[in-house]
Design a protein around this nucleic acid. Sequence first.
DNA 1: TAACTGTACTAGGTATGATAGTACACTATG
DNA 2: CATAGTGTACTATCATACCTAGTACAGTTA
Lengths: 131, 131
Amino acid sequence: MFELDIRSRKPIYEQLVEKLKELIITEVLKTDEQLPSVRLLAQQLTINPNTIQKAYRELEVQGYIYSIKGKGSFVSPASDGFNTEKLLKVKKDIMKLVSEAMYLGVTADELITMIKEINLAIGGGIENDQN
Amino acid sequence: MFELDIRSRKPIYEQLVEKLKELIITEVLKTDEQLPSVRLLAQQLTINPNTIQKAYRELEVQGYIYSIKGKGSFVSPASDGFNTEKLLKVKKDIMKLVSEAMYLGVTADELITMIKEINLAIGGGIENDQN
DNA sequence: TAACTGTACTAGGTATGATAGTACACTATG
DNA sequence: CATAGTGTACTATCATACCTAGTACAGTTA
């Protein structure tokens, strides 16, 4: 399903958070789809279930999944649980990275092209693209 | 000069790297301008000089500064030392964050507006903006 | 020569991450 | 009701990374 970089300085649970978030955002995992159970995924990845649980917890706090005792963990609908605070943080991070990219020589046009390509890849250009 | 968040999970030297990088990118620190010495900054921030040195080392590895034994550390010219690998990494990070922003409901137009604003703030729109 | 600069090393303490183990609460099924 | 699944939470232990204090070497400048 995914591979963890044991040698990375990034904690294992954070790598998990990022991987699962990516699968949700690219809709490989769809709304209300069940995630593998904590114990199953732990077994598959040969890591401790508490480490999985820590990642699932973080995803739930960020609003990407929801969990039901006895049933499992599921992908949240995209409109749920995302607060303005998180949105502001993502925007702030984008601004920082965009500034760094421009400092490194990337042009605004190049970045705009990137955004359009991502937009097409994700939304099909139906709702957002009015240019 | 800047403030460190001692309570943050992020290591102090990493916060330093980010702050200094930001000052360089926004040209608060200009090319060939000397950075405070390792010992002076350590004294000002009440942290260990080795911690400063670690941050400076990382900035040098990434190509943002250069150091001369006995003289000091200085801001590198923007065209120096940035390899393609770092550029690719920044672009990849931007793609990831943009995808997440769109998943959270930010439109492509909104993101494009952000990029144009940053472009104006940084370059004055002289070299890059041909729209 | 003195005072600055960067750089590198050792040793010790602390915090974080991951693990192993255990246990509780809930759901679904037969 | 028992069983097998699910999530959740806790304790204890170990390894690693970070930061510190201290020390020392090499270079530059006045």
